[in-house]
Computed example of a mutant assay.
Amino acid sequence: MMTSDASKTNALSALLMLCLSAGAMFSVTTQAAEASQTVTISSASSESLSTRQQAIPLIAAFMAISDMPSLNAALNQGLDAGLSISETREILVQLYAYVGFPRSLNALNELMTVVQARKQRGIADAPGREPSRAIPVGAELLAAGTANQTKISGAPVKGPVFEFAPVINQFLQTHLFGDIFERDNLDWQSRELATVGALAATPGVESQLRSHMLASLRVGLSEAQLRQVTDLLKKHGDAQTAERAGTALAQALAASRK
């Protein structure tokens, strides 16, 4: 990670700014959306999470607190339930934008260890696939990322923080919602389940967690499925994580019904 190249250092600093600001973006934009329009919620295809989906918030929560033994168990649970190696890897890559590079890198190392151990036991996990289309660049990347951001946030992103630091929204639109969310080897419901799990395990980001509960509803997860997430976090995680998730869900549901 370390380099003497000043331009690479500046680029890394910019991405670290993104890590710190990704959650805040959802808090600001969701408040604007709630004030200006009714939240549109997509129809959910199921009232229960699949076994594959159930593993995702647990993987994310244990990654966020660097609980490697529990992460190891959750990674095995996810792979047993049908998550491909590519999907699992993508979850851990995406979450660097919410919990930071160090935790993401440590979790990816743990996934490598898990996959190798399973291979030695004769388990052939599905490799999955890489994104099926090329990620756009330049103006096309900005347009795609802005469209993704608006759809997930429920309204065009604006607010004082983006007037104060316009470049942060450019990073969000081109990198998080462009480079990452344009990768179609992991669906948006899975991406939101991962983000909710990670934020629920992180004290002090309750407003961002609430915003991601709303985003989860927008991408088609149901109230029952999100309640199941809180139950899973309570059963396999800790009471405070589950309590934060439950409170955020209740607030999101109240906002969506206004």
Score class of each variant (00 low, 15 high):
residue 196 V to H: 04
residue 11 A to F: 09
residue 12 L to P: 00
residue 159 G to F: 06
residue 3 T to E: 02
residue 107 A to C: 08
residue 182 E to M: 05
residue 190 S to A: 15
residue 69 P to D: 02
residue 67 D to M: 10
residue 95 L to A: 08
residue 37 Q to P: 07
residue 256 S to M: 14
residue 239 A to D: 05
residue 234 K to P: 08
residue 254 A to L: 12
residue 206 E to V: 11
residue 55 A to K: 07
residue 164 F to H: 14
residue 211 S to E: 02
residue 169 N to P: 00
residue 13 S to T: 15
residue 102 P to A: 08
residue 183 R to C: 02
residue 190 S to T: 07
residue 227 R to S: 06
residue 88 T to A: 04
residue 239 A to G: 04
residue 116 Q to W: 01
residue 236 H to R: 13
residue 118 R to C: 07
residue 98 Y to S: 04
residue 156 P to D: 04
residue 57 P to V: 08
residue 155 A to Q: 10
residue 49 L to C: 10
residue 55 A to T: 06
residue 61 A to Q: 05
residue 79 L to T: 03
residue 40 T to G: 06
residue 53 Q to I: 04
residue 227 R to M: 11
residue 63 M to Q: 15
residue 114 V to E: 05
residue 8 K to N: 10
residue 195 T to L: 12
residue 145 G to P: 02
residue 251 Q to S: 13
residue 114 V to D: 08
residue 116 Q to F: 02
residue 203 P to V: 10
residue 182 E to W: 00
residue 226 L to R: 05
residue 143 A to L: 08
residue 147 A to Q: 07
residue 161 V to G: 09
residue 125 D to C: 14
residue 139 A to C: 05
residue 12 L to M: 14
residue 228 Q to Y: 09
residue 5 D to Q: 08
residue 27 S to M: 11
residue 232 L to K: 03
residue 3 T to V: 09
residue 181 F to T: 00
residue 231 D to T: 15
residue 174 T to F: 01
residue 231 D to F: 11
residue 172 L to F: 02
residue 110 E to I: 09
residue 119 K to N: 11
residue 27 S to E: 12
residue 187 D to N: 15
residue 135 I to A: 06
